[in-house]
Structure formats: C-alpha cells, structure tokens
Design a protein around this nucleic acid. Structure first.
Lengths: 340, 340
DNA sequence: TTGAAAGCGGTACCAC
DNA sequence: GTGGTACCGCTTTCAA
C-alpha cells in the first residue's frame, strides 16, 4: 500500500512543461497545441497517471457524481431505473451512486447533506419524502439540485417525474371488469406514507364506480408491499363468505404472495381467481403463472429523471416542467375470463 | 444552488478561535479543552456546518470509504452481504459503496483505479477476476487493500474469504441420494469463468461416486445462472428417454426456471421430480413450492470480508489468514422421497 | 491547550 | 498557447 502516487507536478518536471498545461491537456485538450497535447498524453499514459479526485473536486467544487436515493436498495424495481439514469449521466461524464435510506432518518439526512456540501452534484429521490423542515427549510430544499422521481410530494411543489398511477390502476381494474369480474379485491400500498397508494386505490375505485359496481370496503386490504402481506390479504379475503373472483395488487410482490397463498388454499389462478400486479418486475414473466401486471417504463423513468436533474442543475432553479409518463397493461396468464 | 457553504475559517472568525482548534474539536475532541470544545460544538450545530469532504480527503489521503464490487448489482444475493460489510465498516466510521462491473472491462479498471488513487480506502471483490496484468502487475495488485470474497482466484494467492462449495454441493447431492434418488441431474454454473461452478460440480460428482452411482454426463447441463437456463435445461433433460428424478441446481434462479418449466410440462415437483437450489435467495422460501436449497451465510460473509479488509489495511500486506465459511442445507418442499 | 502556517494535488486566473 | 501563482478547505506539524 505504498502510496507514492504520481501527481501533475511530477509529470510537469519530467517533461519540462508547466502543470497548468498538463492539467489542460487532460481536461481541456483543445486549449493545448496538438503537438504538446500528444507529447503530454503519451507520457501520462506511459506513467499510468491517475488524477487525485479529491484535489480536483475540491478545486472545482463538483464531483461529477449524482446520487440515486431509494428506500430499500434490494428492490428489483430500481435497477433498470438506475441504468437509465446512468446512461444519460454518462453522456455528460457523470457517475451515479445508489444510496438506500432503509427508512433511517439519520441516513436520509446524511444523504441530503452530501448534496448540500457538494459531495455529489445532484440527487434523484425515490423515497417519497423529504427530511423535516427543522433540518432543511423548504426554500433551501427547493434550491438544491434534487428531482423527485415517481413519488411526488405535491404539497411542496417540487420538480418531479411521475407516472399516472390513477390511470394505470383504473386500466387494470377496467380490464378485470371486462373479463366479467365484479367482485374485485384490491391489495393496496401502505397508505399513510406516500401518495402512490391512494392514487392507485382511487383509480381502482373509480373504475368500479364508472361500471356501476358498488365499492365494498371489505374488498380493500391495506398491504405493505411485501410478499407476506399479499398472502395475509388472501387469507383474510377468502375466509369471508363473500369471496372475490379477482384481485388487483398495488405491486408485483404482493401479487406473488397472493398467488402462492391461493395455491396453498387450492384455489386455482386464473381459473377461480384472477390476479394482477403492478410494476412488472423481472421475475413476473417467469413466475407461475406468468403475472399480468402494469409495466412501468423503468429505463425511461431513469433517463427522464436524469434529464430533468441536469436541467435543474443548469438553470439552478425549480421552474422546469414536470413530467408524467405512461404505463402499459401487460396481460399474461394470471388473469382470465370469469367462469360463471 | 447558491453555495456559500460554511467553512471552518468562517466559524473560526466568528468565534475568535483558530481554525486548528475548530478542526480538532471536530475530529479529535480530546485534544481540546472541554470548555472550548463545548463552545465550538454548540456553534457548529447551530450553524449546521458540514465539513468539505474533498478537502478533508485530500489532506488525509483517506476517504473512509470502501468499495464492494460485484458483477451484477441487481442480484438479490448481494444485499445481505452488503449489510454485513456495512455493519462492520460503520463501527470504524467507514461507509460502503457498491459498484457493479456489468462485465465491462473498462468499468472494472476504473474501480481498481479508485483504489489505486485512494479515492476509496479498500475494496471487497466479488467478481471473481482481476484486471489484466498489463494494467496492474500482480505484485501491485497484491499490495492493494483488496479482499477476494466468495470467488477465489487461487493462482494468484490473494487474500480471500470463501465458502466450501465442494462440500455444500456434496451435501445437497447426498441428501437427494438419501431420499432414494439415483438419477440426479445437475444444472451447473458457467464453468469457464469462475471456479465456483467446477467446485460445485465436483462436489456433486463426488457424492454420486461415493454412493456407487455412475456419473452420467447427459445429466450435467451447463447453465448460466439465469432463470431461462434452468428452464432450458429441463426442456432438454426431459426430452431424453432416461429422465432424472431429481435436479441439483447451482443457484436458486436456475431452480426457479427448472421448476416453472417442469410445471409447464405437467411434471409435479416434488412428487415426480425433486429440485434443490443453491444460495437461498429471499424469494426462495415464498416460491411455490418453497425451495430446498443451500444457505450461504450472506451477512456473515459480509462481516468477515470487511474484517479481513480492515486487517489488510492495517498491516498493509497480504499475509493475513484466509477464511472459509460453512454453508447449511435448508430443506423445504421442493424435494421429497423418490416414489418408486 | 492553542495558534500560525504549510501543504495535500489539482484548476483557473492573469499575464505574456 | 503556455507559464506563474493563488487558492479550494481542511489537517497537521511546530512552536508558544
């Protein structure tokens, strides 16, 4: 671990050229005569020089790094989003880091401080919440190079990218109705923390209402996005005398849990009960039965979020247009016509 | 995005105390008189001062950050490992970043350069390979604060932590034999890239041999860790006249694929065919049927890897003891007695 | 226990 | 197009 690491001044001395020129040759090649540049780059490569990033960042007050902050890093959903972000970021020479709050308030504040202290140049937030106003004022937050992605926080009128959750849920429910189902249950997202759950539930309710189906609160089970809650929901729903013939779940994982539980109870999916999810996780197409679900354009979500962030970094304020993306209903084998 | 960010000298001026003392109060409190310290910290908190990490890192030549490098960041396997690493790292005030090579050589070299240039203080490698000797000499690599985790590269005698893959595979196969199976197929890891696949296959073969079962190369299918390859394997295995009654898969995902394919072919698991995986991913216990598999102590793997790394950072050389961890066979519902 | 000052390794301004 | 030099913000000697 001997760290006699090479610096610009070493190369400068060796080549009898000023540090400034070396630096320029490395970061602004077109400011340097072609001949000099070639001469320098040749030596730099030969010596395998690596710039000290801390020195550079200190001087430029920029790290060319952006942070993608999520609630739980192990959720399969995020990776394609990450790749979308990375693709756009890379084009401008930025790297992307992924951070996870794990519902830890302290961690969350640390990440925001990374933005505040310029340790990263910006942040894409998918956690659906902001730190307390006691830590950062709303005004301060709005000034920061941050984009809200997927989970909007409308009260604060922050730059954001969302999908149309209401419409997507409505479409899924309408599809079930078209299949002949009337007793349609819904396993929701956790409803208190984020708005997404409410929007999807309202989409579900709206579809029922518009089709003249009475909303039955017994058919709404408040889930928490886990496989286990999907299973628990089914246990409860099918204990009752009035059993649903279809279930719309607010994410795929709960749909997995629901289907597994139905199987344990010897209730066939989709013949007896249709199940439909939300997200279209990678697993869903190889699940058994392959899961009907709402596809969210994850890669695009990442790309567009990053574009928004770049825009915000550039214009340094909060006045850019927000974006709302469309989803798509994917029909596979977990849903079928109601057999009367 | 106005960045009038506060610095130590600002506080120094305001408090009429030298910057040195402020810095000490923040990083070496016991070098500062209690009274002064309290006075300083009170102001620091009030002003919400955040140290400039680039300046600090530049000065100390250490970032208190370590890198966890994997091949594909979206593999569920890694997260608990990550948490184990993080737990140990945190105790010493270190943060952990996770990086993914995505099989991109350039990316890989970049990550190694992060270590070389002190951008991170060390690295835990789970990619099972080192960059070409043309980029880094073997000697240079060995000097670097890097630990090989899970995927050893024995030719280079690098510090490493592994699990006993041979033994684990043998145990899984023996268990199937004990259930009365003799026609046991094996879906392997990709065999050319890493040693793990070979070790597991050899463990499988050894179990058969020791039980007097003839090794049948037709029963060995070379997989690639994906769900799809598990399904493809089954398609092929069950087209033949000589069908296996049990399958040992080199990871859980291929087991998922195998089970789904068997179901499509109306072959009941576990009544007709037993399937056993390797890894015990979070999904496996809620899979249908719940998957029998080899549990790898992921959290412990993370903790121990980080401890090894700290040791290596401390003693600055490659002479620490390597570690080999034990696995555990988890029996669930995807395996059963052979029905004759 | 505290302060002054040097310096980490780059970049960017200014002059030529 | 190139060089000299100040400076980014922190830590760490050294001296008091």
């Amino acid at each position: 671990m001997t760290n006699k690491s090479l610096k610009i001044s070493d190369i400068a001395k060796k080549l009898n050229i000023s540090s400034s020129t070396i630096s320029r040759a490395l970061t602004n090649p077109n400011l340097v005569a072609k001949k000099t540049r070639k001469f320098i780059l040749k030596e730099v490569n030969k010596l395998k020089y690596i710039p000290n990033i801390h020195a550079r960042n200190l001087r430029t007050k920029s790290s060319k790094t952006i942070l993608f902050l999520v609630r739980d890093i192990d959720n399969q959903f995020y990776f394609e989003v990450f790749r979308g972000i990375e693709k756009v970021a890379k084009k401008s020479g930025y790297s992307v880091l992924m951070g996870s709050t794990d519902n830890d308030l302290k961690k969350e504040i640390d990440f925001f401080n990374m933005v505040k202290s310029n340790q990263v140049d910006g942040m894409i937030l998918m956690t659906g919440r902001l730190p307390s106003r006691k830590i950062f004022s709303l005004n301060e937050l709005k000034q920061m190079p941050i984009i809200l992605s997927l989970e909007d926080i409308p009260e604060v009128n922050f730059n954001s990218l969302t999908i149309d959750n209401f419409q997507a849920a409505k479409e899924a429910t309408n599809y079930l109705i078209k299949l002949g189902h009337e007793k349609i249950a819904h396993i929701t997202s956790p409803l208190s923390e984020t708005r997404i759950g409410i929007l999807r539930r309202d989409g579900y309710r709206d579809a029922l209402k518009k089709s003249g189906i009475k909303i039955n609160s017994k058919f709404e089970y408040i889930g928490d996005y886990t496989v286990e809650s999907g299973a628990a929901a089914c246990k409860k729903l099918f204990k009752s005398a009035n059993k649903p013939t279809a279930i719309f779940c607010s994410n795929d994982e709960m749909a997995y849990g629901a289907i597994n539980q139905l199987r344990r109870m010897k209730i066939n999916v989709p013949n007896k009960v249709s199940v439909i999810g939300f997200d279209d996780l990678p697993m869903s197409k190889s699940f058994y039965p392959p899961l009907s679900t709402i596809y969210q354009p994850r890669f695009l979500i990442g790309e567009k979020s990053m574009e928004l962030l770049f825009e915000k970094i550039k214009i340094q304020k909060n006045k850019i247009d927000n974006i709302k993306l469309k989803t798509k209903l994917i029909i596979r084998d977990s849903s079928a016509k109601r057999i009367k």
